[in-house]
């Protein structure tokens, strides 16, 4: 039972990580709370679902979600955030909330207000390993999450692009003074982070077999709690916080029967972290 719930928690945590790591990346570079990231997630879910319905290929659906997610994220950066950079970050935050609401409403107008599902029976298989049951949809989520997070790790930790991303997020002027084109890098960072939010939309849609316009509501605020817990701009902090919160939620409800709404736990944990370690669980230096 405990191990089963841990596996379930890791599955959810992996999805949270795909959303939150992109959010942390964007925050690190632009210092903007990118609420519209959850809009990218919704768009990714719909694009993935329709691509799957047309092609019957989950890999193509994943690639389409990532590609359209990237384009959407880059468009938000270019047409909303860049023109607002000279103003207070609050203005960008309000604009971001506006973009998120507009995206959900746009999706509602185009695809309708009702829940859409994947064809029945595609991910119904179950695998029994010891006493644990892993569903096929869970396996799909786990495999894609591991692949995506490995890709994020490789790009951010092992490439010149990753090093430049860190430099820009720490001191943009000095990054430019070593010949890094920070605007081009911001563009690439948005494309990269948004691709994984798009993929997360598809994975959640397939895991719960439901895609609907308001599906971004919970990730919009929960991913904020996760990056606060992880240390705001620290993408590996966001990763560990996602995994921890995913497992915490599943164990609290499934094993310990804690009578609290599942979605409140991330915020309770965030308050706890802010009280005792305000720089986040992996924040290396205290925030000013």
């Amino acid at each position: 039972m405990l191990l089963q719930q841990i596996i379930n928690g890791l599955t959810i945590g992996g999805i949270y990580a795909l959303i939150a790591m992109g959010l942390a990346l964007v925050y690190g570079i632009l210092r903007i709370i990118h609420v519209a990231h959850a809009g990218v997630y919704v768009v990714g879910a719909y694009i993935g679902l329709y691509t799957f319905l047309i092609t019957h290929s989950f890999v193509l659906a994943a690639l389409a979600s990532m590609a359209v997610g990237s384009l959407f994220g880059v468009a938000v950066q270019k047409f909303v955030y860049l023109p607002l950079l000279k103003h207070s970050p609050i203005i960008s935050l309000i604009a971001s909330i506006g973009v998120f609401i507009a995206t959900q409403e746009g999706v509602r107008l185009i695809f309708g207000p009702y829940i859409k599902s994947f064809p029945s029976g595609i991910f119904d298989a179950q695998y029994h390993i010891g006493g644990i049951i892993i569903t096929q949809s869970q396996l799909v989520v786990l495999v894609f999450s591991v692949l995506a997070i490995s890709a994020i790790w490789f790009v951010t930790e092992k490439t010149k692009f990753g090093l430049a991303l860190k430099a820009v997020s720490q001191d943009m002027d000095m990054a430019e003074s070593v010949a890094i084109d920070s605007k081009k890098l911001m563009f690439l960072a948005f494309a990269f982070g948004s691709a994984f939010a798009g993929l997360a939309g598809l994975l959640v849609g397939s895991y719960f077999n439901s895609v609907y316009p308001a599906m971004g509501d919970v990730p919009a605020y929960k991913s904020l709690a996760i990056i606060v817990v992880g240390g705001m701009s620290n993408i590996w902090g966001a990763f560990w916080a996602s995994i921890f919160i995913g497992v915490l939620e599943t164990l609290s409800i499934g094993v310990f029967n804690i009578p609290l709404p599942r979605d409140s736990l991330a915020f309770i944990f965030m308050v706890f972290v802010l009280m005792f370690k305000p720089e986040g669980i992996m924040g290396l230096f205290k925030r000013n």
Partner: peptide, 12 residues
């Protein structure tokens, strides 16, 4: 760059 190691700073 404070959160990048010495070698990383040099490579930048």
């Amino acid at each position: 760059f404070p959160k990048i190691n010495v070698l990383g700073n040099l490579l930048l």
